[in-house]
Design a protein around this nucleic acid. Structure first.
Length: 899
RNA sequence: GGGAGCAUAGCUCAGUUGGUUUAGAGCAUCUGCCUUACCAGCAGAGGGUCCGCGGUUCGAACCCGUGUGCUCCCACCA
């Protein structure tokens, strides 16, 4: 067989994904359609549905990889693994993209389209980007069940959302009301508090003169005025009062006075409230209830009117009287200019402040009074809080996130769920001509609701015929996502179906920590409310993927790599490796392509190990008759040692995986394969040039490699499957091969293996330091108390350090290179002249280290309180350390004295 | 303003109830090798006041306090 020099991932990956699909390995049994879960336990994961706003980025790559590792591991461990793929309609985000695309590509304004026409374009968009996302998920090798692909606006899903809305409304947990909400003037919709991101910005504080009303001029003062500081001079037209602290001496004289709002000359009262901080600004505050939450609250308290001077798109409204139709920021400049011209601007100063930005459109959010739909959160929050504090749901890494989660739920505020958009589930509320609202899953239901409310018969007749108008708004996208673990199994629309009963609660949800409130907390709420059961047992938070300078990945910085290009360049396995290798749960990950490079190298290492085995296979067939296989005890030793090493590592990996410490598990496997298998084991069993490997040894080497491939498979599925099949003819596939039970590791073999490694390293080091070329053959003389320990080792040792003979406790009778390993003195005899200085230097160095070490150990042991207090096994250990160090020192000193 | 987390080699990070740790790995660096699987490799090496200070302890990278520097979350100071 012709094998390429290096591993080439592209075609191989495509081939295997197709094969796995054709074998339906990722298909979980649809219990509801009569399939039976054959007694296996379910391991369920629902994908955090990516938004159909665009393609997958590195954060998704990390998430999907983590999930695939967990799912594949579970599948190979005997679970009925079910990973549900899907995507999220992402109401506001997608609508913004579609609006933008229509304008740019087709020169169409949203306002010129009907709702239906717009939705047609939106669904086209969804189709396009949804498919790109799905193909990326497949390219990464994700073992999702494509027969279960779900979308948050699928028909049944849409119905589920509506059903939940109606249900919560009837329970009194959803209400409609006028509140101050955050308004997005670009998307022209309400936002939830969570959708507003606060950023530090340098703004300006303007100090503006307000004249004290002429009709009530304070006695004896010329042209009296007060100065008020504000960040938002463009809202002064909405002022309805000014407010000072009642204990502020400076403003006592204004009790009962009125002041004049500049430019529009409106007279407003002076009021007093302790809310005002005497020491900030000028100690006096303008009250603009329509445009600031604090002012709104004060307005409520003093029964002040609300004058909204802004339109929905952020331009000044008729109510502003001046600069009508100007954008709020343009108006600000013009008003400042006007004030300055009129001498009403006292000063302006730089001011560090925080502004809220819409998460989706990145414009400054506008506090606005508006009638919206809200979910009452307090009652829903309680069980969700309990689920985590009681440990039913475990967050990883919990130290970090439990507190955040708890704080949010304990202080949760009502959730604004209506959005003035078209892309999403339309709110199932209807209004009659008088503006009364009726909620039902359908118009008929709403109508019934209406007739129930209007008892008299005549009214009922009227109800049946009267005109009802449906609420135009749609629901917040998270109001659908929070049902995800339930409704992907139709747990809302067909409660108690076989699928949901089997697959719910799911096992683990893997997601970014940034959506802990948006999504995780709310899924737990929905789960507790609708299934009376947590939606998942574990939450695994990945960190944020940043570039190697620690910056967020973003399009504008151009530091967000294209996943498909990365897969093209490195292969999916290498991408998975690279992103996993340095990504402990919850820590941000500084993405650097050099780790993908490492993954690619690792692929190549595996590939070449396979090639070596194939070479041996062909060689041994060729030479079966003529050669006399010469692998006695040492081949056996190598196998025993590696088998036990493998058992040991499998145990470690099992523990790490169960703790979700995936990057450490991968590191451990990586080193087992690269160092222990390739660098040691394969070299130990490698035959002399031209000789064949013994059949038994070869076969054992292959089956050990099989085991390695299997442990690695969840992390790097493609190459492991490929090599598994290249090694041998197989009837099965690695993807569905079940793990054998763990075997305990026998310590004696491990110790012996370590001894061999240490001796080899010490001799190689000595050879290196003395400029002995690898080709120079040497003779070894070892001084040891236990020559028999070398029975199994000496053949390997001789081969590994290129020695033609090894003798024990015998005088080399010549000048030699000397070194020490495992407290044994080793003489290396060669024809090359020896530089005693080099040796002395190295030995002296070792000696100094050991002496220092010995002192620290002795200090402990001579301390009575240590001997009294420390655990016996610790003391024993220290004694052993002391003994070892003393022995080594003795040997080195002897050696040095000879030199 | 409130809360959380982090600080270990040039870089990215391990270090799981304080004791095989005068601290480990990968990458990077340096030295030597075209050794018949792999130069995307092999064999080695160098590199650290475990952020500063104080405390607890027989013993601290680890526990406590404090300072400094980063990061994140929450909050209505114009």
């Amino acid at each position: 067989m012709e094998l390429s020099k290096n591993y080439i991932p592209g075609a191989t990956e495509e081939k295997w994904y197709k094969h796995w699909m054709s074998k339906k390995y990722f298909k979980s049994l649809p219990v509801s359609e009569g399939g039976k879960p054959d007694g296996r336990l379910a391991f369920t994961v629902v994908i955090p549905p990516p938004n159909v706003t665009g393609v997958l980025h590195m954060g998704h790559t990390l998430n999907e990889t983590v999930q695939d590792i967990l799912v594949r591991k579970a599948r190979m461990s005997g679970f009925n693994a079910c990973w549900v793929p899907g995507s999220d309609h992402a109401s506001i985000a997608t609508e913004a993209k579609v609006v933008d695309m229509l304008k740019r590509e087709k020169n169409i304004d949203k306002k010129d389209l009907s709702r239906e026409e717009f939705l047609k374009y939106a669904f086209e968009w969804k189709e396009k980007y949804g498919n790109i996302i799905y193909s990326q998920i497949a390219k990464l090798g994700c073992s999702v069940d494509w027969d279960r692909v779900s979308f948050t606006m699928d028909d049944h899903y849409y119905k589920a959302v509506i059903k939940v809305f109606v249900d919560l409304y009837r329970k009194g947990l959803i209400y409609r009301g006028a509140r101050m909400i955050n308004w997005d003037p670009a998307a022209k919709t309400a936002l939830s508090d969570e959708e507003v991101e606060y950023k530090d910005v340098t703004g300006k504080l303007y100090y503006i003169k307000y004249a004290i009303d002429g009709t009530q001029k304070a006695k004896g003062q010329e042209d009296p005025f007060i100065v008020i500081a504000t960040q938002r001079p463009e809202t002064i037209m909405g002022d309805v009062a000014v407010c000072a602290n009642p204990y502020d001496e400076r403003y006592m004289h204004l009790k009962g006075e009125k002041v004049i709002v500049p430019l529009i000359n409106k007279v407003v009262p002076v009021i007093f409230d302790e809310y005002v901080d005497k020491d900030f600004g000028t100690g006096i505050l303008k009250i603009t209830p329509a445009h600031d939450i604090n002012d709104f609250n004060i307005g409520l308290k003093y029964n002040l009117p609300v004058i909204d001077t802004l339109n929905d798109d952020g331009t000044l409204s008729e109510a502003a009287q001046i600069f009508i139709g100007e954008d709020r920021f343009v108006a600000r400049k013009k008003i400042v200019e006007e004030l300055r011209r009129k001498g009403l601007l006292v000063k302006e100063e730089e001011y560090e402040t925080r502004l809220g930005y819409s998460q989706r459109t990145n414009v400054v959010a506008e506090p606005k009074i508006s009638t919206q739909w809200f979910v009452k959160m307090k009652d829903l929050a309680q069980p969700a809080l309990e689920a985590v504090t009681s440990g039913k749901v475990t967050i990883h890494p919990n130290e970090k996130f439990n507190a955040t989660y708890k704080y949010w739920l304990e202080n949760v505020k009502d959730w604004c769920i209506s959005r003035q958009l078209w892309w999403g589930q339309q709110i199932p509320a209807w209004y009659d001509e008088e503006g009364n609202v009726y909620v039902g899953e359908t118009e008929e239901e709403a109508r019934k609701e209406m007739s129930n409310q209007k008892l008299p018969e005549r009214e009922m007749l009227k109800a049946e015929s009267s005109k009802l108008t449906r609420d135009e708004d749609v629901l917040d996208t998270w109001f659908s996502s929070w049902l995800w673990p339930i409704e992907v199994f139709k747990g809302i629309t067909e409660p108690d179906n076989a699928d949901i009963n089997y697959y719910y609660p799911t096992s683990v949800v893997v997601t970014g920590q940034d959506i802990i409130f948006f999504w995780v907390a709310r899924m737990i709420m929905a789960g507790m409310e609708y299934k009376h059961e947590k939606p998942f047992s574990d939450v695994y938070f990945t960190g944020m993927v940043r570039d190697k300078l620690g910056r967020k990945m973003s399009k504008s910085l151009g530091n967000s790599p294209d996943l498909l290009l990365l897969i093209h360049e490195y292969g999916a396995d290498a991408v998975r490796f690279g992103i996993m290798i340095s990504s402990p749960a919850g820590n941000d990950l500084l993405f650097d392509e050099s780790s993908l490079e490492q993954g690619k190298h690792f692929n190549n290492k595996l590939w070449n190990a396979m090639k070596l085995l194939k070479m041996w296979e062909e060689g041994s067939k060729f030479k079966t008759e003529s050669s006399e296989p010469k692998v006695g005890g040492s081949g056996e030793f190598a196998i025993q040692w590696f088998q036990n090493r493998l058992n040991e590592v499998r145990g470690e990996v099992e523990v790490l995986m169960s703790q979700f410490r995936l990057s450490e598990a991968l590191k451990t496997i990586y080193s087992l394969i690269w160092d222990d298998y390739c660098s040691w084991f394969l070299e130990w069993i490698k035959p002399e040039y031209g000789k064949a490997v013994e059949q038994d040894v070869y076969e054992k080497a292959v089956s050990l490699f099989d085991e390695l491939l299997q442990i690695l498979h969840p992390f790097m599925p493609f190459i492991t499957e490929e090599i598994y099949h290249l090694l041998k003819e197989r009837k099965d596939d690695l993807t569905v091969k079940q793990f054998d039970p763990l075997q305990p590791a026998e310590k004696e073999w491990l110790l012996l293996g370590n001894k061999l490694k240490n001796v080899i390293s010490a001799i190689r080091d000595a050879r290196n330091k003395n400029n002995l070329k690898p080709k120079e053959t040497v003779s070894l003389f070892i001084e040891t108390n236990d020559p028999s320990s070398y029975d199994l080792l000496k053949d390997i040792l001789a081969k590994q350090i290129n020695a033609d003979s090894i003798e024990f406790n015998k005088d080399p009778e010549a000048s030699c290179i000397m070194t020490v390993a495992e407290s044994e003195k080793i003489y290396i005899k060669s024809d090359v002249t020896i530089d005693a200085g080099v040796q002395k230097e190295k030995l002296t160095r070792d000696l100094n280290y050991l002496k220092g070490f010995l002192i620290s150990v002795e200090k402990k042991l001579s301390n009575d309180r240590f001997v009294q207090n420390a655990r016996p096994e610790v003391i024993e250990l220290e004694r052993k350390k002391k003994q070892d160090a003393e022995e080594k020192i003795k040997v080195i000193e002897q050696t040095l004295s000879v030199l």
